[in-house]
Design a protein around this nucleic acid. Structure first.
Length: 559
RNA sequence: GCGCCUGUAGCUCAGGGGAUAGAGCAUCGGACUUCUAAUCCGAGUGCCGCAGGUUCGAUUCCUGCCAGGCGCGCCA
């Protein structure tokens, strides 16, 4: 456990013991013990840590909160907690000030743990499957897919750091109606290019990229039309979706996102898993027949209407393979499923959750994060997009224009459930408005210091050799405190599934460093102080690298 | 009509049952003979959408309303 967390748990323990002692001597009877919460106050004058315990207890003990706080403090034993002073303040807060010595241990901690700093065992190795993006393999990915990629990948990084065993997975809808129409569209273009008169399929994909695909296909398979119509269609569907999947893989890799598994819907069909899941649900008594279709009684698990699983024409609906897929996820040993979906899929949650329960898994083992829309802007002006006319900015185009670092950071700046304004002009602007450069610049500045130290023949000290007590100014202390917060920030972000917290933390760390940089020199100071500050600067570099790594943003040595 | 998300500073957004509600940008004023000024320091700004309710305490939780966005198929 990190020092900051260990310290907090020791202090909480001390409060618990103080409460027991005070209760014994005052005759308090406490039926519902409130959780003991420690927070880092927003206001510096409120100490390093504070607790509202006394105020929480007013409900149990009918006394004034400040009075309770005083009594708690009287019984408080703070040996080995670094707590230097305690006060009762405001309506009944207990504020604690810590001795800086614990901060020096943080620096040693960071050095010892290296890349592992910030990691914890909070998740206890729980097997989690995170499915995200899962765009249909029938066209280029859009900006919401890009947002999902950034959020999903970073959330996986965060949860891994918090001690979960996370797998990243992409579900490929390569067997449904969309895939079929896509195949027909390619085939129609192929025939056109061969000079044949064809009617373009209704609800097909008229966009230009389909023509480009048809051109490639003509070169690769010039004798396609010699096959039967059925074979031609099947071939185009398979070839086209495979081609798109390869494209998506490449685009996502350029975005720094790699999946553990690209799960093919067609494998579910081939393995007869649709039949199996239907049989299972039938035997469990959750399916019924009506109007020639097979229905799932999802209302029994809180959905607002029952859902068709097999249409009257014998074809499964979209839901059926999806249920089979989730069944498959559990069968592979995952204990918790998280899906990241676009804003147009929220209506789908209730039926999927119902299916999970019908399959016999707990409702809370399945979780959906709904991302809100992305509005693209240029210089504050909305970028008009029309999918029908084939005019929209794809994920690849966005990346080509603004670059991986800016794109990832911008997508990660906002809470998932917040609509996102993404100004593409701002993202490439090298100005004060652009937070990506601000953070990277902090890292580059550190590298510059370390580079020059090396050039001057200054040996980089280990934390144990340096006299860290020399780090005393406000700028130095603030910086170490910020470094000390990483482990709890990661746990908080993992628990709440909110990657933007880490983006924010990273920005704040850079800001704290920039302030330190202007207030404190490193090189050229008296040797002992120079050493201590070099230790601090190296630790900051380490933590910036770790957090940028979680965000998937590069940490340049020079800018 | 029903469901989900959002409503906080001029703009973009954090925060969140508690202390004087924050940050960036924009605006204004300062700081480079010294490790990168893509930086720092300072200044002002708020019926936290509206109305009720729960609470010792609500911007935060609950209900209703208003506004914006997105959904509501034997489509995927």
């Amino acid at each position: 456990m990190s020092i900051a967390l260990e310290l907090q748990s020791r202090i909480k323990q001390a409060f618990l013991e103080a409460l027991n002692k005070a209760a014994a001597s005052e005759g308090w009877i406490i039926e519902n013990l409130p959780p003991i919460e420690l927070e880092i106050p927003k206001e510096k004058s409120h100490g390093d840590l504070a607790t509202n315990l006394a105020m929480q207890l007013t409900r149990e003990i009918k006394q004034a909160p400040r009075r309770i706080a005083e009594l708690l403090i009287q019984h408080l034993d703070l040996t080995d907690t670094f707590v230097e002073s305690v006060e009762v303040a405001g309506p009944g807060f207990i504020n604690l000030w810590l001795n800086n010595k614990w901060l020096y241990k943080v620096l040693k901690d960071i050095e010892e743990q290296g890349d592992a700093y910030g990691r914890s065992n909070y998740g206890q190795g729980k097997k989690v499957l995170l499915e995200f993006v899962s765009a249909n393999p029938v066209g280029p990915m859009n900006v919401v897919n890009a947002r999902a990629a950034a959020v999903g990948d970073t959330l996986a990084n965060i949860m891994e750091a918090a001690g979960y065993d996370v797998s990243r997975e992409y579900y490929v809808n390569d067997a449904g109606r969309q895939a079929h129409l896509f195949g027909l569209s390619i085939l129609a273009r192929y025939k056109e290019l061969a000079g044949l008169e064809v009617e373009f399929p209704e609800d097909g994909y008229p966009a230009d990229y389909v023509i480009e695909l048809a051109k490639i296909l003509r070169q690769e398979v010039p004798d396609l039309l010699e096959k039967s119509q059925e074979e031609q269609e099947a071939f185009c569907k398979r070839w086209g979706t495979d081609r798109m999947v390869e494209q998506q893989k490449a685009d996502l890799a350029a975005f720094g996102v790699e999946f553990d598994l690209w799960f093919r819907e067609r494998d579910l069909h081939q393995g007869h898993q649709l039949d199996e899941v239907i049989k299972f649900m039938q035997e469990a008594g959750y399916l019924y027949e009506e109007d020639g279709a097979i229905w799932f009684a999802s209302t029994r698990f809180g959905d607002d209407k029952d859902r068709v699983m097999v249409k009257s024409d014998g074809e499964p609906t979209y839901l059926t393979p999806d249920v089979a897929y989730h069944w498959n996820k559990y069968s592979r040993g995952f204990e918790h499923l998280i899906n990241i979906w676009g804003p147009d899929h929220h209506g789908y949650i209730a039926r999927m959750s119902a299916a999970i329960q019908a399959l016999g898994y707990p409702a809370d083992s399945f979780e959906v994060i709904i991302l809100q829309l992305v509005t693209l802007l240029r210089h504050g002006e909305k970028v008009r997009m029309s999918k029908r006319a084939g005019r929209f900015i794809s994920m690849k185009e966005l990346l080509d224009e603004v670059g991986k670092d800016a794109a990832r950071y911008f997508f990660l700046m906002r809470a998932p459930d917040s609509h996102l304004d993404f100004d593409m002009a701002l993202a490439v602007e090298q100005s004060q408005e652009n937070p990506v450069y601000y953070i990277q610049y902090a890292h580059a500045r550190i590298c510059s210091i370390l580079r020059q130290a090396e050039e001057n023949g200054v040996k980089l000290p280990m934390a144990a050799q340096a006299d860290l007590n020399l780090l005393q100014t406000e700028a130095e202390i603030d910086l170490i405190k910020k470094l000390a917060q990483l482990p709890e920030e990661i746990i908080e972000a993992a628990e709440r599934r909110e990657p933007h917290r880490i983006a924010r933390y990273c920005y704040e760390l850079a800001s704290t460093f920039h302030s330190f940089y202007t207030h404190c020199r490193v090189l050229g100071e008296e040797e002992a102080l120079q050493e201590a500050r070099l230790v601090l600067v190296q630790a900051t570099k380490q933590v910036l690298q770790i957090t940028l790594g979680i965000l998937g943003v590069s940490a340049p040595e020079q800018m």
